[in-house]
Design a protein around this nucleic acid. Structure first.
Lengths: 205, 205, 205, 205
DNA sequence: TATGAATGAGGATTCATTCAT
DNA sequence: TATGAATGAATCCTCATTCAT
């Protein structure tokens, strides 16, 4: 049988597909991936059960696609934000802001990524995406170190620390209270991260 | 029937119960909570299915207990580490170290907590535990601010940032390569966190 | 809507129809009738699903047609082979040869007939076809008995035995090794059948 | 999870298992393997759906077991029938009789074997069983040839021809009219087979 | 004629939970 | 306490068939 993945779709088909992804992302994030059945998704969309399998080869494939698209979109958003910027420290700051802004606006996808990181079947994909993100940040960090702008240190580790700060603040402070303005949190996250990268002030003087 | 939760157990019974918790923690972390069936657990323990329901009222109750025990144990470990310490900044450092050490040694529990945070049914419990942890750290932070040891700032936000750094570094650097020595990562995490708390050096000076 | 069965077709339509029958015969024989979906068939042909239902009213109707066509073709082939032959024993021999040759060249159809004979829904049709074939042979057998060319016996039973020998040798020896020359098997089948029809040599002598 | 295949069963469990096999054999033969759902089977037995999977790992595994058991039983029945017989021709005759008697009494299993031979997934197992049966017969045939009791010839081919005769006569004459006495058919089958093995009388004479 | 899309009943299978012994 | 057996609702997925375009 033809694979649902490589189907050539009409405009109407593309729209349906997008709609399913949207609804599924919301439901998966709300109730959890496993507790949400394919029936829940198609019911919410208002179509027959077969439609799901016309567009996706399996429930798992759908989640995988959501995750991959999310990671790609975040990365693209961050790269756009630092395009044309030459100063590595400014790149870091703008990258952190862009990352948090994206995450702030894509709460559901972030929830799914955090879930997927804990499940054997999806973890490898997530890890790969995180590695890429860490590598992106590490490039700027290495340049900043080389230029003496920040103290010497393990760029990968610093990058992971930054990811930890931004992700957790997003979940614990922005998503936890969606009515509040995210900017102060983002500002604080930037200050914390830059401070953390600079590390302890020279113990002397 | 009497509730499995409040059963008075013999020594052998306590042992069985502990064994089930241990095996379930490992399996849940390895395959995921939902993909692991009660049958998987009892088979791994080598007992019949009835045993499970003798000690636990449901699969969900078991996970809830694992999560609560884990959060309590981490907190106890951290409080023990700062007992008798009076300097708030040293409290912070020791708390961070103790937290990471505990997390480093309880990878499976951490995985489950991270999973539970993404699922509606368990998230409230996790959030409560994180709030407590953040409050613990906030106490020290508030004192440090009051004593002028660190710049003024939102203590809760700083606490959350610290949690983010430590949790993520643990997952991304310690658990990802269990053969490596965790101490350098912990040291770096402490430096990053203290640096982050101190924030950007006074722009002037 | 007008019935797909009685549709007046253009030359191109006839060709399409034939093509679907051909592909379906192969797929049904390879994977089995039930495990082969209509989607499998139209995909293999390279057309849309609607095409199938333009030419056939249902999947079942398609199989029924394949079976009926197959049984008719075999019978026609056998009748052609004995046309003009007057000696009943020679008719038998030629009929056996013709039947086996046809079966040897239509492995897929034979597989489908053998399958259909085991399934309630199709068995009656198959049985009717086999009855006809047995009757055909019985005619010659009866003449041969009447003329004293072969011993007295139940012509229908002898005919069924011949069908059993030819069908099974075809499946077990010719179809099982399509690269081998079928002629020796056919020769042996003829000898076996004629021997069988003659039965045990008079115990006396 | 423990495999349903290797489960240690209590007496009651063994009985249930046997009961399911019995009912499934009948239903599969009546309606066809694919058209019969697991629900049909458990409903006919009068148990819950889960019971099926407690005893069998899948619907396919159940059919495979039925087929294997059937082939083994027939072989055992035939071997018992010729135990102690030394004359190869008598072995053949008794083997043919025993085989047909067994088939006559196990119509459903025979139907399933005939079905399975036409489906890719099961055919290899069936073929193996038929090869064994043919080999069994070939042993006697080879001895008979060596002793000059029957003309020289391909023992495997003769064996297959015998299988074809017996199987087909069973289906077309015994199973088709279960009220009739099978003995005359069996007698005729023996005569036909022995005659077939002896082949055409020496053309000279 | 032909296609992509849709339908929804039905299928195999799983699994948390219960119960008789 | 413990076990094998049983339950049956729920899950993912398939597929023959239909329909709008």
């Amino acid at each position: 049988m033809d694979d649902a993945a490589d189907r050539r779709l009409t405009a109407r088909g593309e729209e349906r597909r997008r709609q399913i992804i949207e609804v599924a992302t919301r439901l998966f994030a709300e109730k959890g991936y496993h507790p949400t059945s394919v029936a829940d998704v198609v019911d919410a969309v208002g179509v027959g059960k077969g439609v799901f399998y016309w567009y996706f080869s399996s429930k798992e494939a759908l989640l995988t696609e959501i995750l991959r698209d999310g990671q790609l979109a975040r990365r693209r958003h961050q790269r756009d934000a630092i395009a044309g910027i030459d100063d590595p420290v400014e790149q870091l700051e703008r990258g952190i802001r862009a990352g948090m802004e994206w995450m702030a606006e894509h709460r559901d996808v972030i929830t799914l990524i955090r879930f997927a990181a804990t499940e054997e079947r999806f973890a490898p994909g997530i890890r790969k995406g995180e590695d890429v993100a860490a590598d992106d940040a590490a490039v700027a960090l290495r340049r900043a170190i080389a230029e003496g702008r920040i103290p010497d240190g393990d760029p990968d580790l610093l990058a992971r620390a930054v990811v930890g700060v931004t992700q957790h603040l997003c979940a614990a402070r922005i998503h936890a209270d969606p009515s509040a303005d995210p900017q102060p949190v983002i500002d604080a996250a930037v200050r914390f991260c830059i401070g953390g990268i600079l590390g302890l002030p020279a113990p002397a003087a």
